[in-house]
Amino acid sequence: MKLLEIKNLYVTIDTLDGPLQIIKGIDFSIEKGERLGIVGESGCGKSITSLAIMALLPHKSKVTGQILLNGEDINLFNEEQMCRIRGNKIGMIFQEPMTALNPVKTIGAQIAESLILHRNMKKRQRIYEVEQLLESVDLPVERFGLNLYPHQLSGGQRQRVMIAMAIACKPDILIADEPTTALDVTVQKQILELIKELAMKFGMSLIMISHDLGVIAQTTQKVMIMYAGEVMEQGETSKVFKHMSHPYTQGLFAAIPKPGSSRLEGKKRLSTIPGSVPDPTSTLQGCIFEPRCRFSDDICLKSEPEKSDISPGHHVRCFHPVVKD
């Protein structure tokens, strides 16, 4: 049995202009201890997917499909049952360390909260546990007391506190939603390493959400490329990165600046994907990426591509997958 299995997930949000489908039937799964990356442009639905798993989407949204955690469909759970999953079975790290911590509570109290909610511990034991957690995210207790407030810490330090909070109950799954986007470049690498290291140390599965292919390559074993609420390509990270088959994946990769190809010295301009993410209100026929795709033809306009195998464990949804030389 898979640890987490998502089957046919749809997310619809009610807006003033009618319902809006943000996630259009995605499937994926994750084994115990496995590390999965979800990549895509902003607005592609990668954060929505993680919030749907946590059942933390705004009330106006509807989630259909199955979210099986250890074989149990948590999408059918009520709020009270979900409270026992969140922080306990699934921990989450958010993007903005500046605003994701409560400004009027000490970091010690905020880390201890999950323990209070899910673990029956004496106060002394809890303090010891929180100190251990701070040590494990490299915030030595001698310098970073439990009584500090978030505003007294730097962005990177706050993100470490976030991590300590998320792993406090040693959850089965750790979801990191763009954990380094808001941080300085120098700090980013350390935080990524820390997350990966902790996931391995405690045997937690990791879902790493990012728009940055480099982050995914560094931390994950499996990857899923999302575009406009659909999965374009998925498979083992090493295979996908070696044989990028979907034109969108290729476009994403080509958009990364490479050393030595800056506009000043070089001749080549940084490549971009033409066009922009489709308006979710429009109901286009055919492949969702067709308007921006350089290989598009009649079939792409008429019907939607099904999943096809490039190699075992590497699927793509495209009529014209790029086959590498």
Binding site: M54, L56, E79, E80, C83, R84, I85, R86, G87, N88, G91, M92, F94, E96, T99, A100, L101, N102, P103, V104, K105, E113, S114, L117, H118, M162, M165, A166, A168
Partner: peptide, 26 residues
């Protein structure tokens, strides 16, 4: 609507508890 409210909920704090423990003081 603040981010830290979502953080608290992600830790498993119920809406009611979040309102009293996290939102009210702010």
């Amino acid at each position: 609507k603040e981010d830290y409210i979502r953080t608290a909920q992600a830790k498993g704090s119920s809406l009611r508890r979040t309102l009293w423990r996290h939102a009210l003081r702010n």
